[in-house]
Design a protein around this nucleic acid. Structure first.
Lengths: 338, 338
DNA sequence: GTGAAAGCGCTAACAT
DNA sequence: ATGTTAGCGCTTTCAC
């Protein structure tokens, strides 16, 4: 009854041509008479016709749907990444499905299966879980994946990451230059390559001096682990004079707990994070951190993925390590406000 | 050459049955011999067959893809909403495409057109732009839309929002009870219904006392507008003693600027927000705010949308106004830390 | 330059 | 209980 959305067949009939011709016009294909093209275009406009990407996907095998796998979209690092991914994707006519895996391998499997069935063309994997093999075996074709924010173990797959080791070393060097020697590192999970690399950088920088006293606290990249680490150090009776957190979220947790315990930052304890989230740039927080240039990470991931999806030439995985930048702010230097 | 992913036809051939039978087994349809079913199931497992949701979508007209339209995923309100939407959606086998419109009507149009073509079943509109009619006319069927975080002007469409007016009035009452009389309100755009309702609640509460002095600053729901408002009030030489911000993000901006100007919160100036983002719960910020129970908002939106999509009965739009709760924290009461 | 026809992988009558 | 047959809306040879 309702006119519903017109199909290509409706357009063809109305314009008095064949569906093949309409299809050609749509695809800007050659070999279409100028008069015919005009007539078809007009009919399309008149009818308000919109091609069904669904049908197109079925026949072409490409849905123009991308998936972004994150840990937890609430972690401030991810919305920024998601925004840049979405921006770059839609610039190319792609939409992005965002999936929070909660670092559960089972969830990665479920989501990937669902998305694959729904025709996802490719996935950007920015979560840090132990789900690399599950994802790769489910996807099959390595051209359809790009890892970011994490370096995959498997060879032959593309990734774009930050120079985590160098960034952390640089950051630690900044604290050492300020005279700190007893520095605590709030770590991430051992299975997260980015967290491990940052730990390595910290270790390396600390080892360059003979009188340093590194301390280590376990963590899981959450604010909560930052809180716990600080609490433990305070209770130990002999806390560090500075803290390097594996990411901005744990640094935020550390700051909170310090404030609750009336310790001034940076006077009583200096704090630094890693990520460069916009949130921590606010003067209210003013966290010294390592800027990963998150939007660039997202943009490159999409560019690489689309190139792999559309490239006809043989596949060579792209591996990029982007330079990060030390961002010195109030939590390591300057007037204490706490 | 490559075995590619097997189709239903492959399964049928291998199992020695017709595709219809395989389809029945998949759909858990009745009327399938128990032996046949077992054989088909086994073949499916052997071949590693996965039904193509794409093909299914083409024939059934449903893609199991939902769209969440937000303003800007980086605004801390949205990731929390997105998380709950995604959770509830995947529980029902749906995936969620997230689109940041940046409050641009043109962007809403572009994204909606793309997503519609890609077969989105329905959209949850949580952005606050002036794009209501564009969205509705593009979608056509009101059953495929739910507004949240904003109340649509058009009748006949579902929405789930918070009791913004009452929440803001309650919050303002809290400040009045503390003795504040000169209170500033950092507003949102006039086209955003939630912002306007909060303003109304503020006005109403202030009007209940004769000696109150309301002040108003324009804003756009961003942290930046919070910064500017505070700066203007400070410069005016006669700032309010308390501030009610239209949302948590602007409250955050206000806090920043107060800190930069060495004003203590809440002693020199009390500050309150609206949203109940988890970020502001941190003891480092401890923002008094109105809790919208964001996850509930997301969950209900999805439930209502899915019900509308799958319901066979005639359509009656669902309009829900959820109760919010006052969350009194450090920025209006207690020891100042700034 | 344009059309006819064969599918893409699946579902849903309609047979049997 | 199971098979046959039409499509869903589009792209893409292959003819003319």
């Amino acid at each position: 009854m309702s006119p519903d959305t017109p199909t290509i067949a409706d357009v063809a009939r109305t314009a008095g041509v064949s569906v093949a011709t309409v299809s050609r016009v749509l695809r800007a294909g050659p070999d279409v008479g100028v008069g015919t093209r005009a007539r078809v275009l007009e009919t399309i406009r008149d009818l308000g016709y919109r091609p069904s990407a669904l049908a197109r996907a079925l026949v072409s095998g490409r849905s123009r749907l991308l998936t972004l796998l994150v840990d937890d979209i609430v972690n401030p690092f991810y919305p920024q990444l998601a925004k840049s991914v979405e921006y770059e994707a839609k610039k190319n006519g792609y939409s992005v499905v965002i999936c929070s895996t909660g670092n559960s391998t089972a969830e990665t499997r479920r989501s990937t299966e669902r998305l694959l069935a729904q025709g996802t063309d490719g996935v950007i994997h920015a979560s840090v879980g132990r789900d690399e093999h599950v994802l790769l075996s489910l996807i099959g074709d390595p051209r359809r994946v790009v890892f970011t924010n994490r370096r995959p173990v498997s060879p032959g797959v593309s990734y774009v990451v930050s120079d985590n080791r160098a960034g952390a070393a640089h950051l630690t060097g900044h604290l050492l230059a300020l005279g700190h020697r007893r520095i605590g590192f709030i770590a991430g999970p051992k299975f997260a390559s980015n967290a491990v690399e940052r730990l390595d950088g910290f270790r390396e920088a600390m080892a360059a001096f003979t009188d340093t006293e590194p301390l280590y606290a376990p963590g899981d990249l959450s604010a909560e682990s930052g809180r716990r680490a600080v609490l433990d150090w305070i209770r130990s009776g002999c806390p560090p004079t500075a803290i390097v957190a594996v990411n901005d979220a744990s640094a935020l947790g550390a700051l909170e707990t310090l404030a609750l315990n009336h310790l001034r930052v940076p006077d009583d304890m200096a704090v630094a994070g890693f990520d460069g989230t916009s949130l921590c740039a606010s003067s209210h927080i003013s966290l010294t951190t390592v800027d990963q240039h998150i939007p660039r990470l997202g943009r490159r991931s999409v560019q690489i993925l689309l190139q792999q999806l559309n490239g006809s030439h043989e596949f060579h995985p792209t591996n990029e390590v982007l330079l990060s930048a030390l961002l010195v702010r109030g939590t390591t230097i300057g007037n204490s406000r706490n």
